[in-house]
Write a protein that binds this DNA or RNA. Structure first.
Length: 647
RNA sequence: GCCGAUGUAGCUCAGUGGUAGAGCAGCGGUUUCGUAAACCGCAGGUCACGGGUUCAAGUCCCGUCAUCGGCUCCA
């Protein structure tokens, strides 16, 4: 290897450390082909010198650099393909409806969309028309060309064709900066775009348009609502099929579907967006609450029960009246105004303030499973994940300022343990900072925000900052988990609050006899029990662990003659606290097995002549594992162990 | 709240202006059976609700409610 590259070559360092000498002026694509034909065919872009942005394959390398090739099937590669697919879709829409105005069309985690302004209301059937127009563009395999234009020229160009959203976007760019445009179809379609794109439209080998939706321009509810067309694209037809299949499977796990099938909850327009928990759902619900109560004993919480309805003064003092009145249920009696509680915190301040508090009592941890009501706007509600009545495993910790970090450390452990117990993947953690509309001083906020950040760092929890997403009274740490179809939900939360103690004038007496203000930590581990159950149903596909299953086992007599024995067996298992069913129906055992499997019963205990004679049951473990015949004591030991270890 | 779609038996769904259907579930009977659906019969509907168009509306139009997909919001 020569020490210095010649005048006409550059040295390109590959991710594996290999150095490739390549003619000056080679494109990323050339380099990929030099590495291997397979890679050359599979690549869609490249990254130079570890920069975050992906560059076009056509990007020319004219100096020594490090390069990593982005292949079509990688996450980055898919992003490029999808972004190009969104351009192709925009082109197709322009061909079909020439008076359309384009806004933005990015790629997303599992596809892409384009927001368009079009007088004609697109119908679901139009998606097929757009798809076939897109296919024409893709079949033409025309080159994606990048061109840089001075800002003012670009502005002029888009203004001339009346693309007002593009004009608005460009106006937001710094003056004098060059604007990059991408065109394909020999210039018949041109769009403002940072890139990168695949070399030609033919690279988009597998795509599908998915749905239509409304979306506000720039995500602001005050702006015009545009039409959003969602689609997805993959590097191969096979990948698209795999994805489609997975989507189907996810739909089968939808908690609204399973909730109905498994008898967990129902909904009724008589109380919109408010679940009715059926007996089976209530067993799960109460078991979860029981589990939290067990933890509360361990972690020194004290549970309280507080009123449902309060005079408005409470919420005026707390600030909720000003911030959330529209979302509260209010009522008037005796010419006094009352509100149904949308959260427990203000009432806990009354318990705190009901006696003179000493530093010795802190941290004071008050837990409350109180039912909350929030008027969620129509259109935002759904299933168990966003409801108008719910309860949280809510608690408020009243702590001295120097106890904050310690408490949060304990909470992080509690939360981590919970996700592990349920077998959830670790949640994504966000630190939500001060929102525009908030209470308190800058000093309070920065103290609170850095307090949370320090606690996270000290406990080695990786997190992302979510600017302006905090509660109006304080910053928070949110723990985000996904449902079956990838929608994200906040379950656990830890919120720091210097405001309520101030507003309700809470105090404690220190060792020195002076009075200080406690800090409040609002926290929920499961979050809303309703939402938690919704996510739990989807994560487990209804296969609840033994300790949570509403019916942990079902005894299946083969014929009527075996029913008395079966009944006895059920009674003795129930006497040990297990939830056992009996299928005494007039059906063949095959049908009973089928019914029980559909209900996801963890254990099926079959009894026939043999079992009666031997004093056993034949145990079948979900979904279809034969554990053989077991005497009663062995079954009991198994169930007790499952219960004890929460498996 | 906004954009769009949907609403037929308990559930899943068919029914494109001319007499409301199927499967499963339910009920009655027969069958007593060995690991994913035995057989026969019966019953079940103001086609979400309210208006309108029409000789005639589940079907077309308008409104309301609810649900679903998004957007915005989420103490």
């Amino acid at each position: 290897m020569s020490e210095t590259a010649s005048q006409n070559t550059v040295r390109v360092t590959l991710p594996d450390g290999r150095v490739l000498e390549t003619p000056k002026g080679s494109s990323i694509r050339d380099v990929a082909f030099r590495i291997g034909t397979g890679l050359g065919k599979a690549c869609v872009g490249g990254r130079v010198n570890g920069a975050p942005e992906i560059l076009d394959l056509r990007f020319v390398i004219d100096s020594d650099c490090s390069l990593s090739i982005v292949t079509a099937d990688s996450k980055d590669g898919l992003e490029v393909i999808r972004h190009s697919a969104s351009h192709i879709m925009a082109d197709a829409i322009c061909r079909l409806w020439p008076d359309v105005k384009l806004s933005i069309g990015p790629s997303t985690d599992d596809g892409f969309y384009y927001d368009i302004d079009l007088d004609v209301k697109l119908q679901p059937g139009d998606l097929e028309r757009i798809e076939s127009e897109m296919t024409k563009v893709i079949d033409a395999d025309s080159t994606f060309e990048r061109c840089e234009t001075p800002r003012d020229a670009a502005l002029e160009r888009f203004r001339a064709i009346g693309e007002k959203y593009k004009v608005e976007l460009i106006e937001g760019f710094p003056a004098g900066e060059a604007i990059s445009l991408y065109r394909h179809g020999g210039g018949s379609f041109e769009d403002l775009c940072r890139g990168p794109h695949v070399p030609s439209t033919g690279y988009v080998k597998a795509f599908k348009l998915l749905s239509l939706a409304g979306a506000y321009w720039r995500g602001d509810e005050k702006n015009k609502m545009l039409q959003r067309v969602y689609g997805t694209a993959f590097s191969s037809k096979k990948d698209l099929e795999v994805w489609s299949k997975r989507q189907e499977e996810a739909k089968a796990r939808d908690h609204r579907k399973l909730g109905k099938e498994l008898g967990i909850f129902m909904m009724h327009p008589i109380s919109p967006a408010s679940p009715f928990f059926l007996p089976r759902g209530t067993l799960i619900y109460n078991r979860l609450v029981q589990h939290m109560r067990e933890l509360y004993r361990k972690y020194n919480y004290q549970e309280v029960i507080t009123p449902q309805i309060f005079e408005s003064e409470l919420f005026k003092t707390s600030g909720h009246w000003a911030h959330y009145l529209d979302a509260m249920y209010v009522t008037e009696k005796d010419e006094r105004q009352f509100g149904v509680k949308p959260m427990n915190c203000p009432s806990h301040t009354y318990i705190y303030a009901s006696e003179k508090r000493s530093y010795r009592e802190l941290p004071l941890r008050l837990a409350d499973f109180g039912r909350l009501h929030r008027y969620e706007r129509s259109g935002v509600t759904g299933g168990l994940t966003r409801v108008r009545t719910f309860c949280q495993d809510d608690a408020h910790l009243f702590v001295a300022p120097d106890q904050i970090k310690g408490e949060i450390t304990i909470l992080l452990k509690m939360i981590t343990d919970i996700y592990e117990l349920f077998g959830f993947t670790p949640p994504r953690v966000f630190l939500a900072t001060r929102p525009a509309d908030s209470l308190g001083t800058d000093e309070m906020w920065s103290k609170a925000e850095s307090g949370l950040a320090d606690a996270l760092k000290e406990n080695g929890v990786a997190y992302t900052i979510n600017p302006g997403d905090g509660a109006f009274y304080g910053p928070k740490i949110d723990f985000i988990t996904e449902d079956a179809i990838g929608r994200e939900w906040q379950l656990s939360t830890i919120q720091l609050d210097f405001n309520l103690p101030e507003r309700f004038d809470l105090k404690y007496t220190t060792r020195d006899g002076t009075e200080e203000r406690p800090v409040m930590i609002h926290r929920a581990v499961l979050g809303s029990i309703e939402r938690f159950i919704g996510v739990l149903i989807e994560q487990t596909s209804g296969n609840f662990p033994f300790w949570l299953a509403p019916e942990q086992a079902r005894v299946l007599p083969i014929a009527d003659a075996h029913t008395p024995y079966a009944r006895e067996f059920v009674a003795s298992l129930e006497a040990s606290g297990h939830r056992i069913g009996l299928d005494g129906s007039n059906q063949k055992v095959g049908a009973k097995i089928r019914d029980a499997r559909l209900m996801r019963i963890p254990y099926l205990l079959v009894v026939g002549d043999r079992e009666v004679a031997e004093g056993t049951v034949s145990v079948r473990e979900r979904p279809d594992k034969d554990l053989g015949a077991m005497p009663k004591d062995q079954v009991l030991a198994l169930f007790n162990e499952l219960e004890r270890t929460k498996k």
